[in-house]
Design a protein around this nucleic acid. Structure first.
Lengths: 212, 212
DNA sequence: AACGTTAGTTACCGGTCAGTAACATTGTGG
DNA sequence: CCACAATGTTACTGACCGGTAACTAACGTT
């Protein structure tokens, strides 16, 4: 009677068939490389090997896709964060230094290239760049970015506290400024040709200054 | 015979009557507040109290207006830079500290509001934000931003050298990262609610660390 | 064989984009 | 008064935007 064992079981093992994923992948690539406003849904669908109609069968609107793009990038950043600090568990200072060093590490960019991203050079923080393009009345997207940046701030302050800084909030914020500045200037100075090349030394100096 | 004394002398004392200036003013305001791609020439012309046709009589294309917007903002930034460091001529450290302090000084924002800018909150660096929106093949606009950021870098490194830093290039770059990070995070954290509140203390610590 | 799901195709909607043509209206200077 | 230049007005082009309708082809399940 109520047999229906799993319902659409092998075509979509968990939730989505595969067109949706192709679209999201293409969107992540195009949005990151060219910006959100510069990429239309037609271009995304085309890049995904499908068409606009199939796009709107998977996403109610472009904004929904953008929201998913942002949360996707956020997930990716946190995964990278965790794997960066994992080897130095218990040593907050080493963890921060690893995070800062990863900002000028182009190896993981190559890793991203392998898994499909066609970026020849990093364009910094996807969420931060999105903040430039998101209109101020769009709370839905704006909040995603705000929550993300707030979490970065929280984590860096926490690490500063763990390493026994005299003013952990100030140290955490200072480290955040360095990293954000690195992302920002990456847009203008490709790879490590800009001021980001000094980020590791600067972070060490800041940490030292906050440890009496 | 060849009398023609000055030709269009009092309506345009130097070069332009006044529609052009109104358009440029409106463009600076709208571009800064909403981004370049988000603002069409119709909206600019309308805000300037004129129409699209008069716009294209003053500017060959939107890109030309954008270029002028960017160079205009750059001029404004350098004027602000010079007036900020002027009181501390000869004392490079004080000059840098004044520059950094001006990043969290909302007074000059109010000054801008008086002279016509309707921004209720700063949206950071106009040139840096433009870098997010400028397509990578647009060298004309990209170069404007690149030259501007390069000049910032040069000036900060020079100031670091003047204050006798052990590694002036590294200190200059570190200071630049702090400031750029401040501009970047301003987009997400209005006014001084973000990590930029720690920028003065961070800059002092960095300078101290570089002075043996 | 009948069915529902997933996907591709084509054509279209209203709106906005950058940019232009042709014409009417000012105002100022000689 | 006339000429000329600057400005305003209306209407338009062609392209693209986000979004939708209607139809068709492939597929697995029962």
């Amino acid at each position: 009677m109520n047999a229906k064992p799993v319902a659409t079981e092998n075509a979509a093992p968990a939730d989505k068939p595969r067109v949706r994923d192709r679209i999201l992948d293409a969107a992540c690539d195009l949005f990151y490389r060219h910006g959100i406003r510069a990429v239309g849904v037609d271009a995304i669908a085309n890049e995904a090997g499908t068409n606009k109609m199939s796009f709107y069968r998977s996403f109610p609107s472009k904004d929904d896709l953008v929201a998913e793009y942002l949360t996707d990038q956020e997930r990716e950043y946190w995964a990278r964060w965790d794997e960066t600090i994992a080897p130095y568990a218990g040593d907050a200072r080493r963890q921060v230094e690893a995070l800062v060093a990863s900002d000028i590490d182009l190896a993981w960019l190559r890793a991203k290239a392998i898994e499909g991203c066609k970026c020849k050079t990093s364009r910094g923080c996807a969420l931060g760049n999105a903040a430039v393009e998101i209109p101020e009345d769009n709370d839905r997207l704006g909040d995603i970015v705000h929550r993300y940046k707030t979490e970065i701030r929280r984590r860096l302050r926490k690490l500063a506290r763990e390493m026994g800084a005299s003013d952990p909030d100030a140290l955490g914020d200072a480290l955040m400024l360095l990293r954000e500045g690195g992302y920002y200037t990456r847009l203008t100075f490709p790879n490590n040709t800009g001021p980001i090349s000094a980020i590791v030394k600067a972070a060490r100096a800041l940490i030292d200054a906050h440890l009496e």
